[in-house]
Design a protein around this nucleic acid. Sequence first.
RNA 1: GCCACGGUGGUGUAGCCCGGUCUAGCAUGGGGGCCUGUCACGCCCUUGACCCGAGUUCAAAUCCCGGCCGUGGCGCCA
Length: 432
Amino acid sequence: MEIKRTHLAAEITPKIEGSEVVLLGWLHEKRDLGGLRFLLLRDRSGLVQVVANKKTAQPDLWEALSSIKRESVLALGGVVKSSPQAPRGVEVRVKWVKPLISSEDPPIDIVGKTQADLDTRLDYRIIDLRRSEPQAIFKLQNTITSAIRSFLYDNGFIEVFTPKIISTATEGGASLFSVFYYDRLAYLSQSPQLYKEALTSAFERVFEIGPAFRAEESDTLRHLSEITMVDVEGAFMDYNDVMGLLDGLIKKIIMNVNQNNADELKALGRDKFTINFPLPRITYDQVTSILDEKGISYEKEGDLGTVELKALSEELKGFYFITDWPTKARPFYAMPIKGKEDRCESFDLMYGWIELASGATRINDESILRTRMTSQGLNPDAFKTHLKWFKYGMPPHAGFGLGLARLLMAVSGKDNIREVVMFPRDKRRLEP
RNA sequence: GCCACGGUGGUGUAGCCCGGUCUAGCAUGGGGGCCUGUCACGCCCUUGACCCGAGUUCAAAUCCCGGCCGUGGCGCCA
C-alpha cells in the first residue's frame, strides 16, 4: 500500500499535539454542523475524532467529508490538536482524505442507537463484529485462549492436532455428522477423546484446542452443532490432579482477564472477578441429598437435568466441581473408584447451572476397558483401532474436555452461546 | 423433537384482543435543505413495511388453517 499509517486511533493523544499523522480505518459516524464537520474514524485500536472547518478546508476536501458513507474505508492525514471539547480531549484536524473503498449503508446499526435482534445480527455477523460489545467478547476469548496455551505450556503440555474426519463413531452414543470421503462414508469427530488418551503414551501431556461436531437435536442457549473444545490429557495423573490443574488454569485466565481486559469488561458491564481458589468440590451424592432436601426429583444414578442443576445453582454460585459421578452415568473410559465401583473418578466443572468441563481418571487396562464397554452396551470390536494402543504400555492418565464458548459465556456474562461464537452453527443455521 | 409465544420499512417497535377509523403511528437509518464545537448534535422536508400460501367475510396487518422462520422453556446432548 502506498499510503502508510503513522498512528492508530488510540495513539492519538494530547501528548503528540502538533504531529502530522496518517490514519487508516473505517468511517464510524459523522456529524455535520454546517460550518464544521466531525468524523469518527475507527480502527482496530478504537475511535478518534476528526474535524474540518468550512472556512479553512479546501472545497474538494469539504465535499468529500460529507459524501463518504459510513463504514467506508479511508485514509486521511491531518494534525493532532488537543481540545477540551473533543472526546478523550484530542482530535485530528484533517488536511486530506482519500477514500479507499466505499460502503453501502450498513444493514444494522453499529453505533448503538437501535439494537438489532441476535438473529438479525448473526445474519450480518461481520458487520455486527464491528460493534464494541462483540469486539469485547472476542478480545476476552483471545485472552482466554492465550492464557490456556501459556498455562499448559508452562505445565509441560504440548499442543497437538488430531483428525476431525474419522472412520467410525469414536464412542458410540451421540449422533455424528456423516461426510463423503472419496468412495466411503466418514464422520466428523465429536471429540478427540480417544486420540488424546492414546497420545499420553507418546508425549505424556497433550492438549488440543479444536472443533468438535455434534449432530444432536439440542435447541438450547448453550448447545451448538459445532463447538471449540479445549481437550487436555496427562499421563500419571488422576482426576484430583486434573481438577488441581483446572483450578490453576481458571485462576490464570481470571487473572489475565482482570489485568488485560478492563475496557472489555466495562463494555460488557462486568466487574473484575474475585474468585477464591481452590474451587469448591461437591460430590454427586452430596448434590442428590441437597436435591432431596429441596424436594427436587431426579433420576436415581443418572445425569442431572436442567431443572436439577438450576435448583442446585441456587446453593452454589460461580465455579465449582461436582465429583464422583455414578459410573453408569459416565462414559466407558471413566475409572471406577476402588472399593466403590458404582462411583467413578470423574467430575464436571460447573459455572452456576452450566456445565463447562467434564473430566475423569481414565481406565488404562485393556481388559477392564472391554468389560466397561460391554456393560455400557457397546461392542468392543468397534473400538479395535483404539484398543490396540492399550497393548503397548498405556500409562495411567486423566484429563478433561472444556467447552471454550461455555467458559466465555461465564466470563462475558452472556446467556446465549450464539453471542460468544463468531459464526455459530445450530440445527438451522448454516450461514454465514 | 415437545410445549408456549411471536413474524409490521434497512434496524427496533406501536397497532392485532374488540375486522372497517390504517391513506399503517413512533424511533433510528437513507435522500434533500438549514446550522461553527458536535459527541444519541438540533430543526424542516422526504423515502421506505403488514413472512408465504390457502380460507372466513361485503371488508383481513387484525379472525381460522397449513408451511417456513424466530424467541423462551424442556428434552436430547459419552
